[in-house]
Design a protein around this nucleic acid. Structure first.
Length: 111
DNA sequence: GTTGTGACTACCA
DNA sequence: ATGGTAGCCACAA
């Protein structure tokens, strides 16, 4: 099951439009697994460094990059976002303009 | 079986 | 706005 869930998570993350962002909880809900926000993070963490998945478009519910402001990971994510036109101040992102209102889950197994 | 640990959240003081 | 706290869930010791 968790294997399946990972697949769906990847799918949803891949579905985030360029220049938009979504939160961990949002992704979890879109997958049909509300409450699995934490697991979304865990899953993204396991991604290989050369993965093509737009993991940088995933942020926390407060609208910020989860990494500490100075960290390399944070800078990497911020660069990728800004390159897509997303405005990032420190770790903060302007959700009003960039947050993605995702719709249904493409690959929801059950249902 | 229990315990500790996160790329998380929602609440409450 | 800010910090602490208590749920949350899979996973590894």
């Amino acid at each position: 099951m968790t294997d399946e869930l990972k697949r769906i998570i990847w799918q949803q993350v891949a579905a985030i439009p360029r220049g938009k962002v979504a939160t961990y909880g949002q992704i979890a809900r879109l997958c049909g697994y509300p409450g699995y926000a934490r697991y979304v993070g865990t899953t993204l963490k396991q991604l290989p460094g050369d993965s093509a998945l737009p993991w940088h478009r995933v942020i926390n519910a407060r609208g910020q990059i989860v990494f500490a402001e100075g960290s390399a990971a944070c800078q990497r994510q911020r660069d990728r976002l800004q390159r897509e036109g997303v405005e990032v101040k420190g770790t903060l992102i302007s959700l009003r303009r960039y947050q993605w209102d995702g719709i249904a889950c493409n690959g929801n197994p059950q249902n």
